[in-house]
């Protein structure tokens, strides 16, 4: 008995080590581009080479002073602020409606609003571009914002919907039995408990909107260009590591925001990969 047990235990050990090695390799694959970008961002020379011969911060300076990036950043903030806030209001209301009520056309409406998850962004971008041309509208901020609302809505809906599912429906019944009218119960019980879900939905929407590229390429004009579009145009013209510097800032800010979100909201629960107890 004992003699059989020991080799089995060793086998399990080996399996465990092998498993974690595979995971480490995968993590390395995910992180590799970020590390390489970070190295090249501090490279003094204008051509991408490895390893860098000398170091400098000039590409960061250029990233901050290049006019198109500054404009794209501002445009991005405007568009993101409107798009994510509108998407939050629309998506939260609708998530509540799908969770609580049955009504005619519910399924169709849900399918239409989640379709941007599977319909290619270039198709949606092209659609809004043609739509604008048909009504002879120019490529204004409004067009970009509407397009972004449609694109990020599924993520807000999902985030709020998951929070609503995790909410105990009896809390509202308890409020009603204590004399709270539906509006009052919503305001004093449901809404405060949904705040983490609403916030994470808004945050997801904001990050996705700010970084959206493909559809934006179709619906933005020179004046409404967002940062990713400006970055794409930059790569087509220049080969220096300015974009690497910008990418580093991007990665650091995004990872920082997500770490904060994880700390305060529990990303695992929001993404439904771990369960609320």
């Amino acid at each position: 008995m004992r003699r059989r047990l020991i080799p089995a235990r060793i086998g399990e050990r080996i399996l465990k080590v092998a498993g974690w090695s595979v995971v480490a390799l995968i993590v390395a694959f995910i992180i590799l581009p970020a590390v390489v970008v970070a190295i090249s961002a501090f490279n003094d020379r204008a051509i991408l080479t490895f390893p860098p011969q000398s170091w400098s911060l000039r590409w960061f300076r250029r990233a901050f002073t290049y006019r198109d990036f500054a404009v794209g950043f501002q445009n991005g903030l405007i568009i993101t602020a409107f798009a994510s806030s509108i998407a939050l209001v629309v998506g939260a209301g609708f998530a509540f409606a799908i969770d609580r009520y049955s009504f005619r056309g519910k399924r169709a409406l849900e399918a239409m609003l989640t379709s941007p998850l599977v319909i290619p962004h270039f198709t949606i971008g092209l659609g809004f571009l043609i739509l604008a041309a048909q009504v002879h509208a120019t490529r204004t901020f409004a067009l970009v914002i509407v397009c972004h609302v449609v694109l990020v809505l599924p993520f807000v809906m999902r985030s709020v919907y998951v929070s609503l599912r995790n909410l105990d429906g009896r809390l509202e019944l308890a409020a009603a039995s204590l004399g709270a009218r539906p509006g009052m119960a919503l305001w004093t019980v449901t809404l405060p408990l949904l705040i983490p879900g609403l916030f994470s939905g808004w945050l997801f929407a904001a990050i996705l909107s700010f970084n959206e590229f493909t559809a934006s390429l179709f619906v933005t004009a020179q004046a409404t260009q967002t940062l990713p579009v400006a970055m794409y145009n930059y790569v087509r013209e220049y080969a220096d590591p300015t974009l690497a510097a910008l990418s580093v800032i991007y990665i650091v800010v995004t990872a920082g925001l997500l770490t904060l979100a994880n700390q305060f909201l529990g990303l695992g629960k929001v993404l439904n990969v771990e369960h609320a107890r």
Binding site: I30, F204, F213, I251, L271
Partner: peptide, 20 residues
């Protein structure tokens, strides 16, 4: 692991492709 796996999702295609 969660942050590592999820962060690229929010970086946008341009940054990620440029890195590659």
């Amino acid at each position: 692991l969660l942050i590592t796996a999820v962060t690229p999702l929010f970086l946008g295609e341009v940054v990620r492709t440029y890195s590659w």
